[in-house]
């Protein structure tokens, strides 16, 4: 009897507790205050707040990023068109930069069609900003200033991707052959089936997240820059060392907090990279993605030299509050949204 009752009530009981937000009132207050401080930070620096569409015709071609996709049935052409929720507002913000917007920032939702985890929710809040006239070093300094303002951190550590691997794994990520990468994975107990079928970048990224990340940015944020050129789809290649791109990431207490770079402004090079991405997708059996022609036309018009960065607001809040899961800072994470 008990079992029968249990089953018939399951559907309703499953929702009984899930209507509630997963945040505390304290976390909601912290978010409101954080957003206020960020807006003040940019106002003081004369960076303009902008809004760009989250639903666009174009999307990212990157083989490891997938956008939510829908069909629009009311297009003026009469036939349905594909629209994509943006994985970041990057293309539209760069179109504004090409239209001489000057320095701009945006706080918006971003969507990624991927798994949920301690640090991941498919819908999240992103802060993205662009600084014409800055290089990635100047932008790193500004990100550090923002972290000092919002998290009251000490000035950050800065090292190259190469230095990080040298110090914590004892190999060079730019020149080590795959056999050395595989040997390092074994040495650090990274136990995965058919490791030799992983791409070189995936091997590096696994080594980085398992071995390097836990050892950096624990006391104060750590900026890692000069990533392998293959891991930076929209960044310029370094002038002195073409093996690396002018890209940086910020790590703090186990979180990958921000990703920034000197923006690639060559339309032809950008088109080549998009096509290259789609070729990789095809080779993997993934569907290819439409290239954002509006974005490429804007680049053809001319993008001022600039650096830009995207920072995860939810993760920033997690760090400020010292909580261990993103569910504690998002009112209704996707599984109960």
């Amino acid at each position: 009897m008990r079992h029968v009752l249990f089953i018939s009530n399951w559907c309703t009981t499953a929702f009984m507790s899930t209507w509630k937000p997963t945040t505390s009132h304290h976390a909601r207050l912290a978010r409101a205050t954080m957003l206020k401080h960020i807006r003040q930070f940019f106002e003081d620096r004369h960076v303009l707040e902008v809004e760009t569409p989250l639903l666009c015709h174009g999307t990212i071609t990157d083989e490891h990023l997938d956008a939510f996709h829908t069909q629009y049935h009311f297009d003026s052409t009469g036939s349905p068109v594909s629209l994509y929720l943006q994985t970041s507002p990057e293309y539209a913000m760069k179109r504004l930069l090409c239209a001489e917007s000057g320095a701009i920032y945006q706080i918006c939702k971003a969507f990624r069609h991927e798994g949920e985890g301690r640090w991941h929710n498919p819908e999240f809040t992103m802060l993205e900003w662009y600084r014409p006239g800055f290089d990635h070093y100047e932008l790193m300094a500004e990100v550090d200033a923002l972290l000092m303002t919002t998290l009251h951190t000490a000035p950050a550590d800065v090292m190259t991707y190469q230095q990080a691997f040298d110090e914590h794994i004892g190999i060079c990520p730019l020149s080590a052959p795959s056999s050395i990468l595989l040997e390092s994975m074994t040495r650090f107990d990274i136990n995965i089936d058919s490791p030799h079928t992983l791409s070189r970048d995936s091997m590096l990224q696994l080594l980085f997240s398992v071995v390097v990340e836990p050892n950096i940015g624990q006391e104060r944020p750590c900026f890692i820059h000069s990533f392998p050129a293959s891991q930076a789809a929209l960044a310029t290649i370094n002038k002195e060392d073409e093996r690396v791109a002018d890209r940086f990431e910020v790590y703090f207490k186990g979180a990958e907090l921000a990703n920034g770079f000197n923006e690639l402004s060559s339309a032809s090079e950008q088109r080549k990279r998009f096509i290259g991405d789609n070729e990789k997708r095809q080779a993997n059996g993934q569907e290819t993605k439409p290239i954002d022609e509006h974005f490429l036309h804007a680049l053809e018009h001319g993008l001022p030299p600039c650096a830009g960065v995207a920072l995860g607001i939810d993760r920033l809040l997690m760090l400020q509050l010292g909580v261990s899961t993103i569910r504690d800072v998002i009112n209704f994470p996707t599984h109960i949204a």
């Binding site: 798994g115 985890g117 301690r118 991941h120 398992v210 891991q231 789809a233 990958e256």
Partner: peptide, 14 residues
């Protein structure tokens, strides 16, 4: 179970 997904990389479960 920890979901590991670098912004620009392949996703893994550790």
């Amino acid at each position: 179970n920890e979901y590991v997904k670098p912004g620009k990389g392949q996703a893994f479960n550790r």
